[in-house]
């Protein structure tokens, strides 16, 4: 690692100020960032830890019934504290990494990183959540802009993510056997006004909504409604762990299983 200054502010305002320094970078749980730094693939001047900011911690239920999760909340906390209010999201959080990683990694860190194989982007996009930052609110549909790319500006911090709670939801993850990220992960959420299907792990462009499946399932919420539907393999990732065709196939299978889990 290149060396850097370390700061651990206790308020969002202080964190924003610290991130104003040139080449300063926010540190969530560090579960992806620290390995990246070890490879010397980044050289921040300072890391601003968000783990000491009390107002960015925890899971709570808003007046409108949505579940609001502080940006610095760990996966383990979400798995535990959202289990009653939003079980599918809690289950997703409980499948990220491994127990020790879940004790450090945070929802804000994961969503801001937007790894194309990460679980949370599927949960956020599939839920139609709102990403709240220190300056604005960003709809999930506008937030994810391709692998490792988001709508966040330099120095902008995800302070909270608000999830409308669907009638039913399920996350179906097929493991990449080495990293245990998603080879394909499908987050399906059924709302009164329609179904959302978000897919991670599969596409070169990162998390995406499978609109054909959404339309079909909105019309008729049965696994059979997916018959004959398939994402275009050409847009899928093909690598050591699975071909483009295989990933496209898995998208269908995982979506079907998500429907079955919700039925």
């Amino acid at each position: 690692m290149y060396n850097f200054e370390f700061e651990k502010p206790s308020t969002i305002a202080d964190a924003v100020a610290a991130l104003g320094a040139e080449d300063a970078q926010a540190l969530g749980g560090g579960q992806t960032l620290i390995p990246t730094l070890k490879q010397r693939l980044a050289a921040p001047s300072a890391l601003v830890s968000l783990s000491g900011i009390a107002e960015m911690q925890g899971v709570c239920i808003e007046d409108d019934g949505s579940v609001a999760i502080g940006g610095a909340t760990t996966h383990a906390t979400v798995a535990r504290e959202a289990a009653a209010s939003y079980p599918a999201l809690a289950a997703l959080a409980g499948q990220i990494g491994d127990p020790a990683v879940r004790n450090r990694g945070t929802i804000g860190g994961s969503v801001a990183n937007n790894d194309p194989a990460a679980c949370y982007p599927a949960g956020v996009l599939g839920s139609g959540a709102t990403v709240v930052t220190n300056t604005r609110q960003i709809a999930a549909d506008d937030f994810f802009q391709g692998m490792f790319t988001t709508a966040l500006d330099e120095g902008e911090i995800i302070t909270q993510i608000r999830f409308p709670v669907p009638q039913a939801a399920s996350y179906q993850k097929f493991l990449q056997p080495a990293s245990r990220f998603a080879l394909v992960g499908v987050y399906l959420a059924r709302f009164a006004d329609g179904v959302r299907v978000a897919v991670t792990g599969a596409s070169e462009d990162g998390v995406f909504r499978w609109s054909e499946a959404e339309e079909a399932l909105t019309k008729e919420f049965r696994a059979d409604a997916l018959m004959g539907l398939k994402v275009n393999p050409m847009n899928m990732i093909g690598d050591l762990h699975g071909s483009k065709d295989y990933r496209a196939h898995l998208v269908s299978v995982m979506t079907k299983r998500a429907v079955q889990a919700c039925s």
Partner: peptide
């Protein structure tokens, strides 16, 4: 080397 770490070499 495509499988250059435990992220791609499945133990």
């Amino acid at each position: 080397l495509l499988s250059a770490s435990f992220m791609d070499y499945a133990m």
